[in-house]
Computed example of a mutant assay.
Amino acid sequence: MSFTKVTEQDSNHSDLETKSISELLSAINNEDKTVPYAVEKALPQIERLVEKVVKQLKLGGRLFYMGAGTSGRLGVVDASECPPTFGVPHELVIGLIAGGETAIRKAVEFAEDSTTQGWLDLQDYAISKDDIVIGIAASGTTPYVLHALKKCNENGISTGSITCNASCPISLEAQLPVEVVVGPEFVTGSSRMKAGTAQKLVLNMISTATMIQLGKVKGNKMVDMQLSNDKLVDRGIRMIQAELQVSNEEAAKLLKEYGSVRGAVTNHIK
């Protein structure tokens, strides 16, 4: 099946070098405004993917994100923020990027073109049928991602994807594809812009909705967050104060004693 790679089509804006800073910023902002509406159209796909992620994690599996370049970095960011935000183990949500750790900070030439490295990277984590792998690629064609998903499917491992081109190869390979078609980029082909924003929004949805479903949020509070700095300790104290109607001093004492908002609240009530 043929598809149109809209992420590579010419920008709707021309002669950018002749525009003022004000004109550039306004035009970029207007393009960015279209992204949430494109995400909204994909909500049914995102829902099905989240349902599967929750199911696999409840079975004891892990969530893997895989991508190259901006897509890979966004997956790594979302994975790395799950432990401090929701208090889950670092091994529960794992971000893999073509080219490895070096590629997080600088481009690794041709890393995304490998048809074998993606599967090898997953094997380093002893990937199993309990896990789920989500491939992230604006183009929907990245070999590192595409061939890893193929191997996952061959081995009975659940797969999803986040792409920005409809009916692309990665969408057709993934069992649960999410397609957020944001159209041409402001700078032609610069998919770190609207496509990257769309991917970030979808990743926020996947991880946040999943963690809520797993019981990592109470009310609207991050009761399992890691107390890794003074700001978070202060937030935890205020959360305990509000929940238990105790003084600042008492809340601080409970937080120190039990190490988390959930622990403090649960044990105080008991």
Rank of each mutant, 00 (worst) to 15 (best):
G87I: 09
Q213V: 01
K218L: 00
L255P: 00
E23S: 06
T4E: 09
G156T: 12
K218Y: 03
V181C: 12
Q226F: 02
L92Q: 12
G236A: 04
E179Q: 15
Y258T: 00
K106S: 12
K5L: 12
I132G: 01
G67C: 10
I240R: 03
L49K: 00
K52W: 06
N12Y: 07
G60D: 09
N204A: 01
I127W: 10
V217A: 04
E185N: 03
V217I: 10
N229E: 15
G75T: 15
S26D: 10
L57Q: 03
D234R: 03
A174E: 06
S2I: 10
C164P: 09
Q199T: 03
C168R: 09
N155G: 09
N29S: 05
L43C: 14
L24A: 08
A103H: 06
E109L: 13
V187P: 00
I157H: 14
I240S: 04
A252Q: 10
P89A: 07
I237D: 05
K253T: 08
V35S: 02
V246G: 01
R262K: 08
K19D: 07
G183P: 05
M66W: 11
Q199A: 05
A195C: 12
A148D: 09
T208G: 00
A103Q: 06
Q123I: 14
H90C: 11
L49F: 04
F186T: 02
N155A: 11
K151H: 11
H90G: 11
R105A: 11
R73K: 13
K106L: 14
D230A: 15
L203Y: 02
F86T: 03
S191D: 03
E81N: 11
E8N: 07
W119F: 15
S191L: 00
S158G: 11
E243N: 04
I21H: 08
T142E: 12
P143C: 13
Q9L: 07
T266K: 02
E47R: 14
S167M: 13
V50R: 08
L214N: 04
N229G: 12
D234M: 05
K129Q: 15
S247R: 01
K129G: 10
T142K: 10
V180R: 06
G69C: 13
L57P: 00
K58W: 12
N267V: 04
E40M: 13
I136W: 02
T85E: 03
L176R: 08
